[in-house]
């Protein structure tokens, strides 16, 4: 019977991915902290983890951090929502209607490949320093991953499934609803991981240029007054948000598309 026993991995083996990854992160901060013991850095130009942690506690205590995050969240989500609403249908039509695709593909490729962040000052002039200006920057940066992923998803649609729906009496609209959109959905979610990263950059850049509140504004202001502990604190918070959002989408991909497991 012994050879039929199920082998259970030990705790260390089972969680080795998390353990090793977490260990590296801790090591990184420990090394950062430790280097100040040996090198006398000017605290005006660089901070260390212990001070950053204290600064963060301050920001949380005063409520400033949450206020700034809430202010930045509004254009972030408005811009992203607009990017989905415009980008997904546009990408699908470009993929399903070849002539629309041929016409728009070069233009979209140019926009996607170029550093659109450079347009940020202009967009702020056009749309103002408030929510709308920032939302437009977010939209401009994050719409293209949706367009291109939806486009790629349509081109990967199984032609057989199109014939199946046609043969059962389905019309053009049924093809979109029953085959094309469900096929494209995983591509859109994958694209949203890229889009979220770009949208975060957009919010920060928008607030660097012109703003009186928001997390990007906080980073730039703390930098200006050499409050590096708080500046790094805010940067770490933004990094953490980026990780949570992209990993959250990755997790949602696996949970929402069980049928992809076999592909």
């Amino acid at each position: 019977m012994a050879e039929q026993a199920i082998v259970r991995p030990t705790f260390a083996v089972r969680y080795r991915k998390i353990l090793l990854g977490g260990f590296a992160v801790i090591l990184f901060f420990a090394a950062w902290q430790a280097i100040f013991l040996f090198v006398p850095f000017n605290p005006l130009f660089i901070s260390k983890p212990s001070l950053i942690a204290a600064g963060l506690v301050d920001l949380v205590d005063s409520g400033d951090l949450f206020h700034d995050l809430a202010v930045s969240a509004v254009p972030f989500f408005i811009g992203l929502a607009a990017a989905v609403i415009v980008g997904v249908p546009l990408g699908i039509v470009m993929g399903w209607r070849p002539r629309v695709g041929y016409a728009l593909d070069p233009l979209m490729t140019v926009f996607y490949a170029s550093p659109l962040v450079a347009l940020a000052p202009l967009l702020v002039i056009f749309f103002g320093v408030g929510v709308s200006g920032k939302a437009v920057i977010v939209f401009v940066l994050s719409v293209f991953p949706f367009i291109f992923n939806a486009h790629a998803g349509v081109r990967a649609v199984d032609r057989l499934l199109i014939n199946v729906v046609r043969s059962l009496g389905g019309g053009e609209w049924d093809l979109y609803r029953k085959v094309i959109f469900p096929s494209v959905l995983p591509y859109i979610v994958a694209g949203s991981r890229i889009a979220v990263g770009r949208a975060l950059i957009a919010v920060l850049v928008g607030e660097f240029f012109a703003a009186s509140e928001g997390i990007g504004y906080a980073i730039s202001r703390f930098g200006d007054i050499f409050a590096l502990d708080r500046m790094f604190g805010c940067i770490l918070v933004v990094m953490a948000i980026a990780v949570v959002l992209t990993e959250g989408i990755r997790w949602a991909e696996r949970a929402a598309f069980p049928w992809r497991a076999g592909q």
């Binding site: 057989l160 499934l161 199946v164 469900p182 598309f257 049928w259 992809r260 592909q263």
Partner: peptide
């Protein structure tokens, strides 16, 4: 090739 919709 069956032609089943994989998400259904």
């Amino acid at each position: 090739e069956f032609g089943l919709l994989p998400w259904r």
